[in-house]
């Protein structure tokens, strides 16, 4: 999605190396996706569901804290 839109950036974060982010975003299972700090998505979800989360994040808050 980052490749398809200039407005989307995508980080893979290996949580064991950055445990403070796991705490910050309440990561209890993986994969977990956080979009714009606000929209949380648990597990590997189908593409339309993932898109929904991205669009929701894009219609709301700040991209980065």
């Amino acid at each position: 999605m980052a490749l398809e839109s200039d407005l989307v950036t995508a980080d893979m974060v290996e949580i064991q190396e950055f445990p403070y982010l796991g705490n910050k975003y309440n990561v209890y299972g993986v994969p977990k996706t956080v979009a714009n700090e606000t929209v949380h998505l648990e597990g590997a979800v189908p593409e339309p569901k993932f898109l929904e989360a991205v669009l929701k994040a894009g219609s709301t808050a700040n991209a980065r804290s």
Binding site: M12, V13, Y25, P31, A63
Partner: peptide, 13 residues
């Protein structure tokens, strides 16, 4: 999309 979206995908080894 009209606003930036920053995705963070958390994974484990």
């Amino acid at each position: 999309l009209t606003k930036p979206v920053h995705l963070q995908v958390f994974v484990t080894p």
